[in-house]
Amino acid sequence: MSVTAPPEHLDAHGRAESPPERPPARARSRAARSPRRRRTLEVLLAYGLLLPSLLVFAVFVFYPLVRQIYLSFFLTPPFPGEPKHYAGLSQIQQVLTSHDFLNSLWVTVLFVLYTVPAGLVLGLLLAVLAHQQLRGIRFFRTVFSSTVATSVAVASVIFFTLLNPQIGLFSYWFGRTGQLSVLDDPRLALLAVSVVTVWQNLGLAFIVMSAGLQAVPDDLLEASRVDGAGPWTRLRHVILPMLSPTLFFAIVVGSILSLEAFGQIDILTSGGPLQHTNVLVYAIYDQVFNQNNQGRAAVMTVALFLITLVFTLIQIRLLERRVTYER
C-alpha cells in the first residue's frame, strides 16, 4: 500500500465503530434490580463462548472416553459386524492380571524413568550452557532447539540408520558392526528407544528450561555472586529454586509425553524384541489393529487413562507446594 494513499478503510472503520448503544433505561433498571437475572445471563454467555471448544472436546475426547469405558465391559468379536457380549468385570480382571499387560506396564514405567530425568537434566544443562554470554551462542541456541522441528518419525528413521548393524555409525563406534542390532537386543532395545526419545524431546526441554532461566531475576544472581556463592551453590540455592515451576511443568509434560509414546516404538522395534519395548500405547494399538480385540484394548486404554490421571495428580500434590515463590 502506498504511503500517500488515503486511509479510507480506517475512516470507514472509524465510522462503523459508533459508540455502543446504551440499553433502554427500563432494561437497565431491571437488570440492576435483579442480580440473579444478570448472573443467569452471564452464565449463559460463558457457556455460549465455551461451546465451540466443548464440541471439539466432546467429539474427540469425551465421547471416545465414554465409549472406551463402555467397551471395556464387552468381549468384542474379531470381525466387524458380529455381536459383542457383555462380560462385566471379568474381562477387566483378566486383562489387568495378564502377563502381557503387567509387562507393558513395567516397560512403560521403565521407559518413563529412562526418558524423563535424563531429558530434564540434559535440557537444563544445555539451557545453562546457552545462557552464557558467549560469542556465537545464538548459533548453538538454534542447534539445541532444532529437534523441536523434527517429527518422531524423522528422529526414528535417523536413529534406525545410525543403529543399523551393517552401515550404522553408532554400530561402528560401539564395535557392534555385523553383530545383532541394538534394536533386536532384549537388553538394549528399550534403552535405545529411550535415547531416541530423549534426543527428540531435547529441543522442547531446552526451550522450556531456557525460558525458565530467562525468568530468574538478574539481581538474585548478582547478589549471590557478591555473597560469595560459587557456580554450584548458585545453581543449587538460587537458580533451581527459581526454576522449580519450570521443572515441575517439564516433569509433568515429559511424563505424559513418555506415557503416550508410540511412533518411535512402532518404527524402531514394533514392541519387540520379545515384548521388551511393548509400552502400553503400543500394546493397545497391537490389540486393536493386529489382534482385532477392541474389548481388551478398551480395558488397557482406560487403565492408561487412570494411570496418567493419578500420576499427574500425585505430581501436582507433591510438587506444587514447593514451586511458587512470591517475591
Binding site: L220, V238, E326
Partner: peptide
C-alpha cells in the same frame, strides 16, 4: 564488599535467617 540492591534481591525460598546466613555459609 557487600551490596544492598534496590529490589533487595532476597532469595524467595529462604527464610530471613537463611538469607542473612547465606554469605556466611559461603
Amino acid at each position: 564488599v557487600a551490596m544492598v540492591f534496590q529490589s533487595y534481591a532476597l532469595y524467595p525460598q529462604m527464610t530471613a535467617r537463611r538469607n542473612i546466613e547465606f554469605p556466611l555459609k559461603n
